[in-house]
Computed example of a mutant assay.
Amino acid sequence: MSTVDLDAAYRLNPCTALDVLAHCCERRERCSLGTPDVVRFVRALVMHASVRDALDAADLGGTSRARVVAALEHLAATGVIVTAP
């Protein structure tokens, strides 16, 4: 499984439509976060210099932050999100 680099910038893979992102996140056993939250967070990634900055801006509690990182791990491993150039 791919490890998300919290200090790198990520974005939605240009080859991935948002409906694919939503479909991936409906599978809670893999994404562990509801679709609207993950879609909203992934969209916000492009506005931040790194995943860590996006997480800090989201002001998540420890448990929620860990769940978001786990969701990002899955999305990176499946190519739904990629590092930004």
Rank of each mutant, 00 (worst) to 15 (best):
Asp56Cys: 08
His48Asn: 13
Leu45Ala: 08
Asp37Cys: 08
Ala66Gly: 14
Arg52Glu: 11
His48Cys: 07
Ile81Asp: 00
Val46Gln: 07
Ala77Lys: 04
Pro36Tyr: 09
Leu60Glu: 13
Pro36Glu: 10
Thr78His: 02
Val69Ala: 03
Gly61Lys: 11
Arg43Ala: 12
Glu73His: 11
Ala57Trp: 04
Asp53Tyr: 00
Leu60Ala: 13
Arg52Lys: 13
Gly79Tyr: 03
Val46Lys: 02
Gly61Gln: 11
Ala49Ile: 07
Val39Lys: 00
Val46His: 01
Gly62Cys: 09
Val68Glu: 02
Leu33Gly: 05
Arg40Pro: 03
Ala70Tyr: 05
Leu33Tyr: 04
Gly61Trp: 02
Asp59Trp: 03
Val38Asn: 00
Val51Phe: 03
Leu55Gly: 06
Ser64Glu: 14
Ser50Gln: 07
Ser50Phe: 02
Val46Tyr: 02
Glu29Asn: 11
Cys31His: 03
Arg65Asp: 08
Val82Leu: 08
Asp56Val: 09
Gly34Leu: 13
Gly61Ala: 12
Glu73Tyr: 05
Phe41Trp: 08
Arg67Gly: 05
Ala44Gln: 15
Val38Thr: 07
Cys31Lys: 01
Leu60Gln: 11
His74Ala: 10
Gly61Leu: 10
Cys31Arg: 01
Leu60Thr: 15
Ala71Cys: 07
Ser64Asn: 12
Gly61His: 08
Asp59Ile: 14
Thr35Gly: 08
Arg40Tyr: 07
His48Trp: 06
Thr63Asp: 13
Ala71Leu: 05
Leu60Cys: 09
Leu75Gln: 07
Thr63Ile: 15
Leu75Asn: 02
Val42Met: 06
Val68Lys: 02
Leu33Phe: 06
His48Gly: 06
Ala58Glu: 11
Val46Thr: 09
Ala66Ile: 12
Arg30Tyr: 12
Asp53Lys: 04
Leu72Pro: 01
Gly62His: 10
Leu60Arg: 12
Ala44Cys: 09
Leu72Thr: 07
Ile81Ala: 04
Leu72Met: 11
Asp37Leu: 15
Ala76Pro: 00
Glu73Lys: 11
Pro36Val: 15
Arg43Leu: 15
Val38Glu: 00
Leu45Glu: 02
Arg65Cys: 11
Ala49Trp: 05
Val80Ser: 01
Gly61Glu: 12
Leu60Ile: 14
Gly61Ile: 14
Cys31Tyr: 02
Gly61Met: 09
Arg43Gln: 14
